[in-house]
């Protein structure tokens, strides 16, 4: 089913932020905000929680460190103990560099994959381009009117949005998938 939504844009990040605050006060449901660069403070206005991508990175790092350390220890104490200049088989200091490298490698990959999967991004991922200038200089706001798309409600919301400085307020339908 095609659901209608309202799209509008601001031409400046500061106007966007103040506009969004007004939207929030008026109880307008913001579906998404699309910006050409990360606008600082927007998370707070929209009430987004902090991304937990950091935790994914930490888990990846721990996994990397553990597997590197365990593997090296296993190789040199169990699988094929090799006498290298009479040094101990379990030579922890010389296992550290490889452990460190794998920690970084696993953490980085875990984070990037978490980011891509969570944001549904990937090579050739399909996306709806709401406005070709989002990646240039437009700050687009999409407003959810799914629950009540009676004409007067739309009119009311549009008027409130225009008051808050939004431009080019339009009602659109989501593309049928």
């Amino acid at each position: 089913m095609n659901t209608p939504y309202i799209s509008a844009w601001f031409d400046d990040d500061e106007k966007l932020l103040s506009g969004l605050k007004v939207f929030k006060e008026k109880g307008i449901k913001i579906a998404d905000v699309l910006t050409p660069f990360p606008v600082h403070g927007i998370d707070k206005v929209l009430g987004y929680r902090r991304s937990w991508i950091a935790r994914v990175g930490f888990i990846g790092g721990v996994l990397g460190a553990a597997s590197a350390l365990v593997f090296q220890a296993w190789v040199f104490t169990k699988s094929y103990p090799l006498n290298i200049g009479g040094k101990p088989f379990f030579a922890l200091p010389s296992f550290i560099p490889v452990t460190f490298e794998l920690t970084v490698l696993f953490a980085a990959f875990a984070m990037v994959f978490a980011f891509l999967i969570r944001s549904k991004l990937g090579p050739g991922a399909k996306t709806e381009i709401y406005d070709e200038r989002i990646t240039d200089d437009r700050f687009v706001v999409l407003v959810d009117i799914n629950e009540n798309h009676s004409e007067e409600n739309i009119k009311k919301i549009s008027a409130q949005m225009a008051e808050a400085g939004a431009m080019d307020i339009k009602i659109k339908l989501t593309e049928n998938k």
Binding site: I42, L46, Y48, R50, A107, F115, S119, L121, T127
Partner: peptide, 20 residues
Amino acid sequence: FGWKGSARHWSRHESMSLIL
């Protein structure tokens, strides 16, 4: 990669870049 500039994506992107 289907980037659309969503505020949520930017938020994740920024924390990821910082930790990377």
